[in-house]
């Protein structure tokens, strides 16, 4: 089972968290969503997806081309498994963490199956992003392993 840690980022925080997850797991690779074709998503991998929020609840720049392609191609993602982690800033209560929600909705609409908890990190909290993201990834992967056993 290969692990791809996908990220959609604007300021690089989601990229850092993805790279630190790969380092902590000692497995997988971090992939910027802007470098990924939705047709390449496969049921033989598991995807850990991190996505930030930009502006007034929009997708971050590096997730936008992926979502555009997803909506244009409408690939059948049945059998594709992913867990999602949204990054946001509760200073902007109206739009907090909406980028991750949007991305999850787009993947779900194509039939992908979500596993694990919906992870969140609030940049205005004192929680460490990397520690939160690594803990989320480890728990989510343990859930997949249990489900597969």
């Amino acid at each position: 089972m290969s692990i791809d840690v996908l990220y959609g980022t604007e300021s690089g925080n989601a990229e850092m968290a993805a790279e630190e997850i790969v380092a902590a797991l000692g497995d997988g690779r971090a992939v910027d969503l802007q470098d990924l074709d939705p047709d390449d998503l496969t049921s033989s991998a598991v995807y850990l997806v991190l996505c930030s929020t930009y502006g007034d609840g929009e997708l971050p720049a590096s997730a936008q081309p992926f979502v555009d392609a997803l909506q244009a191609k409408r690939p059948d993602l049945t059998g594709v498994r992913y867990a999602i982690f949204g990054l946001g800033d509760s200073s902007y209560a109206e739009s907090y963490s909406l980028g991750g929600n949007q991305l999850a909705e787009c993947l779900d609409a194509q039939g992908a199956a979500r596993f694990g908890d919906f992870g969140r990190h609030d940049a205005s909290s004192s929680d460490d992003l990397v520690a939160s993201a690594v803990a989320w990834a480890e728990t989510a992967l343990a859930d997949v392993a249990t489900a597969a056993a």
Binding site: N13, D89, S91, S124, V130
Partner: peptide, 9 residues
Amino acid sequence: QGTKSVTRQ
């Protein structure tokens, strides 16, 4: 402080 959190990177 959320905007300042890029200092983590």
